[in-house]
């Protein structure tokens, strides 16, 4: 998958029309949940650039090591200034940005599935105000139930602990809808394609 020449992160060559329609639906749903989304090439540098651009000047950036994506994708990022892979309690308290992978994405609901048993993803996807998720377009399914139908799902070790994340944390308990409660205030999804 390539970038457009004009720099827009739009997918340009696609595997199949069905996948295109899933991707379109995914993009729409992510916006509906209050998240943001961009499509980048499957390259470690592209992941680094996307994360740094979204994080802007906010530091430190916490990173949870990927289990499903190749660790190479996060390698250039790890050597950047202000990027932490082994945070302490105080880093968790204050870090404004967390980066994790997702092992799947769901078109109909605009969700990403984060394995919170993998490394420190449970904290990194939860405590910082901005959560950036990297997911491969090939891991896009239509509905949540499609994941449960996978053969491997019967195995108890397969995604022992995971969460469907659909937008930033939100509440309607204080009157109007407010985004940003106990979890991230912003969710940014970087789709590799």
């Amino acid at each position: 998958m390539m970038h457009n020449t004009d720099g827009q992160s739009e997918p340009v060559n696609l595997v199949s029309p069905a996948q295109q329609s899933y991707l379109d639906q995914f993009r729409e749903q992510v916006s509906a949940t209050g998240g943001t989304i961009e499509f980048v090439a499957r390259s470690p540098e592209a992941v680094r650039d996307a994360v740094l651009a979204r994080a802007s000047s906010k530091r430190p950036i916490l990173i949870a090591e990927p289990r499903y994506l190749s660790p190479d994708y996060f390698r250039p990022l790890r050597s950047e200034e202000g990027v932490l892979t082994h945070p302490h309690a105080d880093d968790y308290r204050s870090a404004p940005v967390g980066v994790t992978e997702a092992f799947a994405a769901v078109a109909r609901t605009g969700s990403v599935c984060v394995d919170i048993g993998a490394d420190i993803a449970g904290y990194v996807s939860l405590l910082p105000r901005l959560h950036i998720v990297v997911v491969d377009a090939e891991r896009l399914v239509f509905r949540p139930s499609d994941l449960f139908r996978l053969e491997q799902f019967a195995r108890p070790t397969f995604h022992r602990d995971f969460v469907f994340i659909s937008g930033p944390s939100a509440t309607a308990d204080m009157g109007p809808l407010v985004r940003g409660v106990h979890g991230p205030h912003e969710l940014h999804i970087v789709v590799l394609c």
């Binding site: 609901t109 919170i116 949540p144 602990d161 995971f162 969460v163 994340i165 659909s166 979890g183």
Partner: peptide
């Protein structure tokens, strides 16, 4: 379609 978080966990967490 889904709320922000639908967790499937098997505590104690790893």
């Amino acid at each position: 379609p889904l709320t922000s978080y639908t967790s499937v966990i098997r505590p104690p967490l790893a």
